[in-house]
Design a binder for these strands. Sequence first.
DNA 1: ACTGAAACCGGTTTGAC
DNA 2: GTCAAACCGGTTTCAGT
Lengths: 165, 165
Amino acid sequence: MADSIALDPVDLHILRLLQNDSRTTYRELAAEVGVAPSTCLDRVARLRRSGVILGHQLRLDPARLGRGLEALLSVQVRPHRRELIGPFVERIRTLPESRALFHLTGPDDYLVHVAVTGTADLQRLVLDEFTSRREVARVETRLIFQQWECGPLLPPPAESAESGH
Amino acid sequence: MADSIALDPVDLHILRLLQNDSRTTYRELAAEVGVAPSTCLDRVARLRRSGVILGHQLRLDPARLGRGLEALLSVQVRPHRRELIGPFVERIRTLPESRALFHLTGPDDYLVHVAVTGTADLQRLVLDEFTSRREVARVETRLIFQQWECGPLLPPPAESAESGH
DNA sequence: ACTGAAACCGGTTTGAC
DNA sequence: GTCAAACCGGTTTCAGT
């Protein structure tokens, strides 16, 4: 699974455009890339089938939705065993405040990206959903001043990835 | 700026549906929500104008694009002054390996989410783009075992956010 | 906020290379 | 096998109400 797909310049151009605005029409895509609309359609369908394209998502502004404060919580779960981390992950990832959850190497096992209404809401969240859990050994909270989503995700420039050992 | 917008149940229903699949047609939206398609169009246009909806984005699988390893880099930038952090942010956020960048409170000033081809690529990135920079005082690298995007981002349930400014 | 009509688009078919 | 052109049914969009 997860084999890297061979992508030609047309595929890359299409992906770049769709990452800016996933509702770009096939006609616009075609005009921009310099191929026929049906070709764009074929390419996108292939990219969907091959799993490169996971889906189309709406990006919302948390602040405009009344969640003006975001934070990252580093969490130690001890003991770090499947019986404990399964329910923990399931609970945390379904909290309305959670935006993303990472399972990491290093001393802190999880990083949780949350969006809350303010510091009072954040305090409540930390106390009621994290430190109150028996398996949570430590929580470290860092506020997010500012965040940037980075440029389009593209394959590495050369074929350096596969030197098959 | 970033005032919280008054959203009625129709808006919320539409947002929830579009977060699952931002290409849902206005017709489907209308059928699901129980209003006319043109009403959905009006609502979405308003949400776009008011800034709640930032855009429509394609979600890609980094692994299928040859970037099978992801990591979080915690970075200290010293001295932490505008003249230093401006160029640093600009450089890091435009790296093809960068997926997201956070400016944080706490001892580590920045967190960078990167996607690379493998450990060799990660080592190169850390050495060439981070520790080689004069203003970077410390870099801590943690690998991502697994990550989850969390449920739809919605406004907090009650009117606790706005107690009139 | 709904209706309806016209412009537009997605996706299939067909045909050329 | 891949791309381009034609085509149809569905979608978006904009009047008017």
